[in-house]
Write a protein that binds this DNA or RNA. Structure first.
Lengths: 330, 330
DNA sequence: CTGAAAGCGCTAACAA
DNA sequence: TTGTTAGCGCTTTCAG
């Protein structure tokens, strides 16, 4: 196989310890022997064995990443940012895509434990006491993104409630009086993490209330297209559909286009996430933008701080700024 | 830290070898002691250490994956399929996104070597003899996807030339006489892999020639939008823009929309890849569809065969079927 | 059926 | 400055 430290030691007629000192720039070695060893190592085309190193040091230099589905552009952006940042810092990532299945998430954590990852970045589906106990038992630093779990773990994201509140206020400021809020269920199995969903809905309610408008019509049906098609668009006052994700908004928009319903003339539409795809679609969707890549990068940085034990324990909620993106759909 | 085989052995008053036999369902152990050991292991919440196992067995049970950019939906789909399939088979993946930078690709391969991955799935930017030599030196099974390298490595993909030929023939069959083919350069650094690009262009030429049409107008400018805006759309005969990727076609379409040029009335448009995003865009783009996820799955299966040495050495080009997707843009 | 021991490649503590 | 040695946790071979 590949050359090992032992091989180099034998050839150079020095001890393995000395080779280690040369290869890893450790102190206590003469320049001469160091250069000699390095030369031989290069000739042998030596590459260190990370498995062995990890075993010896108790550090695998790998991070586990749990996301729903990388085919969703939002997760793809996160994935990209995390992978690039982690590698920049000498780590390599194991991604696992759960497709928001709680069983997959459980197995993923198990996987990471046996794989000896040094830390985990997780967008979780699960929640609840039992789940938190499992996480604690892992004894691995974890940073959560997207879905918050509890104060026990660092959370990197945006202020979900405020951002939706701002979105709704923007809609109202454009003259819309009635809000239809789309909020389909994520999945049915297990105890599911509803943090983001609930916060955004609460933000919607609060926003309307603060603007003195009436309660939103909340559509919780998974077939929300059918539900909205039953709404009377002719009656006053002006109505707008608000979605907690652009992908829902795009489905709604497709439905309206198919039925020759004009947006925003007959109904307003507001999305959330400001995904890249929007630039190809007209009318340009109003949405809420936030620095997705920054979330990934911040999560990696924080996770490494936690791994190295030099993090601020009193500050474990890291919120980034959101902003309203105006478009042609309101 | 976590419980180890040694701990279990001590508690059960047996040897480590016996514990190993129980834990890994190896033969030569009585049912009684096995059950006992398994119970103790469960109580201690034992989880195996994959680093140690990998080191001992010379198998890390990890695969390296090299892709351009997961934010591109095409790569995201590949990534998803590969990760899911690999995990199903007990492997875990290290993805590295090169952003089509040859330096990154080099470093990625280096990374994988030191990380002791058992195999690599690669969508390469590089090509050439020197590169091939590097790959050989790795002494790790490699399956290539997307960009073919040479007969030395398994390739999983579609027949690039035939698929573009079919695409062009379809365009011609819709009454278009003149083809504008978009073919922007990928990157400038290093010796770049142009396999796919060249094959598709060749397919375009062959298709036109076989249909008795004149040569395509090939736009090699990276600012292809500027280039197409100089084309006279009023003159006969009917013209169509053919793109070797939907993302180019979407940019072109955006340009036409902005300038109130009607597709397909004033000019036809053909894409390639049939990405998911298309379902949100009108007019529905004509494109070429092929089973992207299948490519990922096939690559994983083949790679494992190569790792285990039970692959068919005479068959190392695995081509999947493509199909023309008709839309409203022709 | 079970135990003992060597070894995977690297690190780290202690001697020399 | 260099060598020696004992691990890290698991697998594997050879005895018993």
């Amino acid at each position: 196989m590949s050359a090992t430290i032992k091989d180099i030691a034998r050839i150079c007629k020095v001890s393995e310890g000395t080779v280690d000192r040369a290869l890893n720039a450790r102190p206590g070695i003469s320049k001469k022997t160091k250069e000699y060893i390095l030369n031989v190592a290069k000739e042998l085309n030596y590459t260190p064995n990370h498995l062995a190193r990890g075993l010896a040091k108790g550090r695998s230099m790998t991070l586990g990443v749990i996301l729903f589905d990388v085919r969703n552009p939002y997760f793809a952006q996160l994935m990209n940012a995390i992978e690039v940042k982690a590698r920049e810092l000498g780590y390599v990532v194991f991604p696992i895509f759960t497709h928001s299945d709680t069983q997959n998430e459980r197995k993923a954590l198990e996987h990471f434990k046996t794989r000896q990852v040094d830390g985990i970045i997780m967008f979780s589906v699960q929640s609840g006491h039992e789940f938190e106990k499992e996480l604690l038992d892992l004894k691995i630093p974890i940073v959560t993104i997207g879905n918050r779990i509890s104060g026990g773990w660092t959370y990197v994201g945006i202020n979900e409630r405020e951002s939706m509140k701002d979105a709704v206020k923007h809609v109202v400021s454009q003259g819309y009086e009635e809000i239809i809020y789309i909020c389909p269920p994520l999945t049915r199995r297990g105890e599911v993490n509803l943090y983001t969903l609930e916060e955004r809905l609460a933000g919607c309610r609060e926003g309307l209330s603060e603007m003195g408008k009436k309660e939103p019509l909340v559509i919780m049906d998974s077939d929300y297209i059918k539900a909205i098609s039953q709404i009377d668009l002719e009656s006053q006052p002006k109505k707008a559909v608000v979605c907690p994700a652009d992908i829902y908004a795009l489905e709604v928009l497709n439905h309206y286009k198919k039925n020759k319903i004009r947006v925003p003339e007959q109904i307003g539409l507001m999305g959330f996430d400001d995904i890249d795809t929007l630039k190809y679609i007209s009318p340009r969707l109003c949405s809420v933008r936030y620095p997705v890549s920054e979330i990934g990068i911040t999560a990696v940085n924080r996770l490494l701080e936690e791994i190295n034990g030099n993090h601020n324990k009193h500050l474990n909620v890291l919120l980034l700024q959101h902003q309203i993106v105006t478009g042609e759909s309101l």
